[in-house]
Write a protein that binds this DNA or RNA. Structure first.
Lengths: 129, 129
DNA sequence: CTTTTTGCAAATCGTTTGCATGGAC
DNA sequence: GTCCATGCAAACGATTTGCAAAAAG
């Protein structure tokens, strides 16, 4: 239904997101895009970030500190979340074995725990639909 | 510093949490404990759940739908999050290989994606402290 | 001209916090 | 008597939403 129409704001948001690997919050995206579009509103940023996530052109990363993060890198990869400063950092490796290796190498001792969250539809919902 | 004092409310919260594997939200815990303590407040439930999480007697699970979930099972394990109904289900296996096996067996095709989030302190914060 | 997108402000929702009172020790 | 914990209500912070105006097609 929704015929997508072009918008400079959305383009600027995509562009900024693609230019960084810092996994910015919606507010950070807002502040950056604002330099180019002084009148842009936070609501527009949220709407577009969610739209991009729905289209599969961006990924929304849920963090334990409330604020969600956005990532233009849609190829599946893992993230390291710093519980002290809240920064989200890319990590790339393929299996659990490497997690422990990484913990004792790249992040010697700094990894305190990790969470694996799966996304999908549970059997109950599958039945109901 | 904080000398922990006994409280019936906290005990009831621990008890309820230990009795279920449904990974309830704070509000769900609130509603259940309320049958035993009609005057208990949501704030107290939040305070105690966070306290238990800090003490390591419970785990707080961040989900993409906003509401955090709590789990009395503190032995590290993985969770499956249903993006349709928001339920959180325990999954147990040890490595990434099994994730794909599981996706095609127990959850045939239902797992759409998964996120691994690491918790710890990043190098920058480690340096600053 | 029709439909989508925007900017703005108000509304929502989960969670936290300040404060006076009540309970634990 | 001294602190810690509670109940309540107000405060918060991130995100969403309703609406009229502006832009795209």
């Amino acid at each position: 239904m929704a015929t997508l129409k072009y918008s400079r704001q959305r383009e600027a948001i995509k562009e900024y997101l693609a230019s960084t690997t810092s996994h910015p919050t919606a507010d950070t995206v807002y502040m950056h895009v604002k330099t180019e579009f002084p009148n842009i509103s936070l609501g527009t940023v949220y709407r577009n970030l969610n739209l991009l996530a729905d289209l599969g052109e961006a990924v929304k990363i849920t963090t334990p500190d409330g604020g969600d993060r956005f990532d233009a890198q849609t190829i599946p990869h893992y993230h390291f979340y710093c519980k002290d400063c809240g920064s989200v950092i890319d990590m790339d490796f393929n299996n659990i074995e490497e997690i422990n290796e990484l913990a004792s190498q790249n992040f010697d001792g700094r990894i305190e725990s990790h969470t694996i969250l799966f996304y999908g539809t549970c059997g109950e919902c599958l039945t109901r639909s």
